[in-house]
Design a protein around this nucleic acid. Structure first.
Lengths: 192, 192
DNA sequence: TTTGACATGTAAGCCGTTACATGATTTA
DNA sequence: TAAATCATGTAACGGCTTACATGTCAAA
């Protein structure tokens, strides 16, 4: 009955285990591949959460010996864990998020930077966006013929659209910002 | 000489004070209005940072009496604070960020939710995106005729493009995801 | 023989949020 | 008289990261 109030991470780990029972190490790899780009998890953190969820009776661990590798502890959902997860999916409210963006902080203080610095920042940001776009495109294309992967594909497409929006923004703002920097900022270190 | 390694928040607060000297309360309001949507700061946190930056000699506080309001402590940059800020703007590397997105976590686990639940989540997300779009549009338009606000306007336009990307994604994925949910998911609470 | 995968954890510590605490002045 | 604005902080706590610690097996 007692409803423990858990951080989002706990539910996410619960959800990942529900996909398929796994040991911490496997789980960390799966998490990185599957939800890593919108919910990063460190290995250490995963081990801590698995431990807590076990103590709360939401997960159950089984030691599994392996021939050529160390013994691993495989976790799976308990009945209680399943219903807690389901309730979170069904009922938990969606809190609007306001993630930090230090790139935009730099842009905000753009009038204090040299034109060269601004250009370097924009270039770096663009390169990163292009790389990510390619990665997302690859995933989206790979999952396209698999209707059962529709939800997963949707998250990758979200990532792609986001990166495309960055590139669009860069294309339209680059000339404006550089012109502004040319006209306004003094050389690096002498801004005022 | 000793370079204290500070969290990003400290540099941001330093940057805000550099725009114009201010007391904690004023700063909190300014922060919310200006960089709030890409770098949220709580009042408490601001007070803590101001205190630390003072102790490090990067800020200087002056008590200012007011007629009809309590005395306030106005902070301004010291010379050392100015050069530390400038070095951060000029040299600090841009760490690629991977912010969390719990909405995408829900989508990822979409095959465990009812069609109604998914629709509700998408509706909520869309409504929020529309609201934010309007707000960003307003800011972008207001700052358009002011070339000296180019950088600030650029951050708002970034926000607008991001929200537009969300709406685009919603438009293209909504039918797909709902169709998938119709075909696959059982009613709420009975998923497996 | 060294690198890399596989595997599991502990410990320290900061960052940041939430809740608490206080009090003057103006306006509804 | 209640609520809102102005104003400043403290305390507790949890979340999460980083660094540390250990060990086997396979491949280069």
């Amino acid at each position: 009955m007692a409803e423990p109030k858990l951080p989002a991470t706990a539910y996410v780990v619960l959800g990942l285990v529900s996909v398929r029972p796994a040991a911490g190490h496997e789980l960390a790899q799966f998490a990185e591949r599957s939800i890593g780009y919108f919910f990063p998890l460190t290995r250490s953190h995963i081990y801590l959460e698995l431990d807590r969820l076990c103590q709360l009776g939401l997960l159950e661990a089984t030691e599994v010996d392996q021939e050529r590798f160390p013994t691993k502890r495989v976790y799976e959902l308990t009945e209680k864990g399943g219903s807690i997860l389901q309730r979170w999916l069904d009922d938990a409210e969606l809190v609007p998020e306001r993630p930090r963006n230090l790139f935009l902080v730099r842009v905000f203080f753009g009038d204090r930077m040299s034109q060269e610095r601004i250009e370097a920042l924009l270039d770096e940001y663009e390169q990163e966006a292009r790389q990510r776009s390619e990665q997302f495109t690859e995933i989206v294309d790979r999952l396209a013929p698999r209707p059962e992967s529709a939800f997963r594909r949707a998250t990758a497409l979200y990532g792609l659209r986001r990166e495309e929006a960055k590139l669009q923004w860069l294309a339209e703002m680059r000339p404006v910002l550089l012109a502004q920097a040319r006209g306004e900022a003094t050389g690096s270190g002498a801004a005022r």
